[in-house]
Simulated assay, not measured.
Amino acid sequence: MAAKPIPGTTLFDGRQAQKGYALNKMCFSFNSAENRAAFKGDEEAYMRRYGLDARQSEAIRTRNVLGLLAAGGNVYYLAKFAGILGLDVQDLGAAQTGMTKEAFKAMLVRQNEQPESLVDD
C-alpha cells in the first residue's frame, strides 16, 4: 500500500534513507562533543570525511533544512545538526512548514486541543 502524499512534505522512506545515509551518519556523529568541535573547526573537511554529496554539502553550508530533508536527511538526525546551530526540533518544524517558530508552536497547541483525529484514513 503506497503512502498518501502530503503536499510540501518529503516522505522519509527506504529510498530517502539510502540517499541520506552519509548525511544522517554525519549528523549522528554530533552526539559526541569532540565531533561537534571538529565540525565547527572545519566544516568542509568534516563533510568530506563522511562522503556527503554536492547537494547535501550545499544544504549544510546554507543551513537549508528543507534541502537537507530532500537530500535524504532524517529529522531526528538533523536535530543533532540543528543543535550545533542553537536550534531545536520546533525550529525545524517551523522551517519545514514555512512558519515562524511562534506560529508553528501555536498550531501544535491548536492541534492538541482538537478532540477528533487530524489524519484522514
Score class of each variant (00 low, 15 high):
Lys4Asn: 07
Asp13Leu: 03
Asp13Ser: 09
Gly14Arg: 07
Gly14Asp: 12
Arg15Glu: 15
Gln16Thr: 08
Ala17Cys: 06
Ala17Met: 13
Gln18Gly: 13
Gln18Leu: 11
Lys19Ile: 06
Gly20Ser: 00
Gly20Pro: 00
Tyr21Glu: 15
Ala22Gly: 07
Leu23Trp: 09
Asn24Ile: 09
Met26Trp: 02
Phe28Met: 08
Ser29Tyr: 02
Phe30Asn: 06
Phe30Trp: 07
Asn31Glu: 11
Asn31Met: 10
Ala33Gly: 09
Arg36Met: 08
Arg36Asn: 03
Arg36Tyr: 04
Ala37Lys: 15
Ala38Ser: 08
Ala38Pro: 05
Lys40Ser: 12
Asp42Trp: 01
Asp42Phe: 03
Glu44Cys: 05
Ala45Leu: 07
Tyr46Thr: 05
Tyr46Cys: 06
Tyr46Ala: 05
Tyr46Glu: 10
Arg48Pro: 00
Arg49Pro: 03
Arg49Thr: 10
Tyr50Cys: 01
Asp53Leu: 00
Asp53Met: 01
Glu58Ala: 14
Glu58Pro: 06
Ala59Trp: 08
Ile60Gln: 11
Arg61Asn: 12
Thr62Trp: 09
Thr62Glu: 15
Arg63Glu: 12
Asn64His: 13
Val65Phe: 15
Val65Met: 14
Leu66Cys: 14
Leu66Pro: 07
Gly67Asp: 09
Leu68Gly: 04
Leu68Asp: 02
Leu68Pro: 01
Ala71Pro: 06
Ala71Ile: 07
Gly73Tyr: 03
Gly73Leu: 04
Asn74Phe: 14
Asn74Tyr: 14
Val75Tyr: 13
Tyr76His: 13
Tyr77Met: 15
Leu78Met: 08
Ala79Trp: 00
Ala79Ile: 00
Ala79Arg: 01
Ala79Ser: 11
Phe81Gly: 00
Phe81Cys: 01
Phe81Trp: 10
Phe81Arg: 02
Ala82Ile: 03
Gly83Lys: 10
Leu85Glu: 13
Leu85Ile: 04
Gly86Gln: 08
Gly86Phe: 04
Asp88Gln: 12
Leu92His: 01
Ala95Asp: 10
Thr97Asp: 09
Gly98Met: 09
Met99Tyr: 06
Thr100Trp: 03
Thr100Arg: 04
Thr100Asp: 12
Thr100Ile: 01
Lys101Leu: 08
Glu102His: 04
Glu102Cys: 05
Ala103Gly: 08
Ala103Pro: 07
Phe104Asp: 12
Ala106Glu: 11
Met107Gln: 14
Met107Leu: 15
Val109His: 09
Val109Ile: 13
